[in-house]
């Protein structure tokens, strides 16, 4: 009895942690839906990206590169480069989640920043709490993110010129909001500054999307040693 109530109390705490991440993060899906439609994607394509790609930064990048006149290839490449970290999260989560069969296919899809982050933050509560946090957060973000993508896409679909609603500034602001918490030290800020300069100076010479991909060179140089 005592043991049980202890376990259920812990679940409630983990669930609260999960939802306090899932609901606000999921609601940013509205921003993505609006950005996608402003960038020329249909409501269906915006929703397909949230359902099938399901990784915020990659989704914004795919939309941003296409909206900027890039080719599908550079758009896919940018999205994929931003998706590498999800693979690394999977490697970290695999021994904890011990997923088999069909579970693994589902678990992989919800392996993102938030589900991994909440799971790792439960480390002191044990592996069961980590697994619970992973799925509660992953499923929560998935549900809210997709719901709000649809709402945002519908909303943007019903307005005219995206610029007169400030959507053309809201999209880079979203990227700024995504990179901001990562600028934790001088090296990170230096990498950000150099990639801004490199991307802008390459813009007149390379096709749209390529100046963005070229900045991976900076990550390689700074991260290598």
């Amino acid at each position: 009895m005592g043991q049980n109530s202890c376990v259920s109390f812990e679940r409630r705490t983990v669930l609260r942690d999960s939802l306090s991440v899932a609901i606000p993060v999921g609601s940013y899906g509205a921003a993505f839906g609006a950005a996608a439609v402003a960038g020329g994607f249909s409501v269906l394509q915006a929703c397909a990206l949230s359902l099938l790609l399901f990784s915020g930064a990659s989704q914004f990048a795919v939309v941003g590169v296409m909206a900027g006149g890039g080719t599908p290839l550079s758009s896919i490449a940018t999205g994929a480069l931003l998706g590498i970290r999800n693979g690394l999260y999977g490697m970290r989560m695999a021994p904890i989640l011990k997923l088999t069969g069909i579970q693994r296919f589902f678990g992989a899809q919800i392996t993102i920043d938030e589900s991994t982050g909440v799971a790792l933050s439960q480390e002191n509560r044990g592996e069961a709490a980590m697994r619970y946090g992973f799925f509660a957060t992953g499923i929560g973000v998935f549900v809210f993110w997709n719901l709000f993508t649809f709402i945002g896409a519908l909303g943007a679909n019903s307005i005219g010129d995206p610029s007169s609603w400030g959507l053309d500034a809201a999209v880079p602001a979203a990227f700024l909001g995504l990179v901001w918490p990562r600028l934790v030290n001088t090296k990170a800020r230096l990498a950000a500054l150099l990639s801004v300069l490199l991307a802008l100076s390459l813009t007149p010479f390379l096709g749209a999307g390529l100046p963005i991909i070229a900045t991976v060179f900076i990550a390689l140089v700074i991260g290598w040693k």
């Binding site: 990170a188 007149p204 749209a208």
Partner: peptide, 26 residues
């Protein structure tokens, strides 16, 4: 380490390009 910097450089470049360019002009 490289993977820590990849999102930083790509997202920063996206901020710059989306804020300051149209087609291939700054």
């Amino acid at each position: 380490r490289v993977n820590t910097f990849i999102p930083i450089v790509l997202l920063s470049a996206l901020v710059a390009v989306q804020t300051l360019t149209i087609d291939s002009q700054v």
